[in-house]
Design a protein around this nucleic acid. Sequence first.
DNA 1: CTGTATCCTATGAGATACTG
DNA 2: CAGTATCTCATAGGATACAG
Lengths: 127, 127
Amino acid sequence: MREPDISIAECSYRRALEIVSNKWTALVIYALEDGTSRYGTIKSRIADISQKMLTQTLKQLERDGLVVRKVTPVVPPAVEYALTPLGMTLLPFLRMLKEWSSAHYASVSEAREAYYAEHQDQDASHG
Amino acid sequence: MREPDISIAECSYRRALEIVSNKWTALVIYALEDGTSRYGTIKSRIADISQKMLTQTLKQLERDGLVVRKVTPVVPPAVEYALTPLGMTLLPFLRMLKEWSSAHYASVSEAREAYYAEHQDQDASHG
DNA sequence: CTGTATCCTATGAGATACTG
DNA sequence: CAGTATCTCATAGGATACAG
């Protein structure tokens, strides 16, 4: 039998969901997949992320022990980021989502098209 | 070599991330793991989800072809929801996140405590 | 180069009341 | 029972300007 209430029983699961549940976290982790990168490198890899969001996401990841920040005191400052071992444990999960998207996202798009074809008078906001 | 820009090259990946990137979607899918459920049953399983959010999430999932909605025209109305085959393909992914949270979430909590212990004068907003 | 600080808007999400 | 509609607030996130 399963627990009747996933909201209480699976608390850590929900906390884990919070880590992934924002626009940039997964992307930043993914950008660090290959190893240490500098701030600017990460930024150029994700391109349309703003400074604010990159800094904020990096801070959260550092706070959560998923990323480590290393400052080299030179001028101009050089800051490098890398996944911690803990952060790396998320990689298989992210790769799995990536595989899922390659394999199935077209189906989601099709479903959406079909849905909007039927409901076009009610909601057509889907570029 | 990898693509230089995950924002453009991995578009479907980002779209897939949008599916998981909200507070309730994963939980609702998870609540349907065992099979068909009625609206009220799902609601009681997730407990602290509001009617609005449950309805909205269910609609999105239906639109994306991940969940199917079946209405039995009786009074009072009976509405059943179930994962589609496509929706079920997300299950392994969600289970993996659940396993990750069981295995590693304590480490995240510890990291946070340590972080706040060092930065307590700057930010202490962490229950 | 690596950030901070501020302003602003859109969206997420809860509360409440109402309906077939 | 299974929603819809509306109000409201908090947060996410983008733009821009500034700083060490």
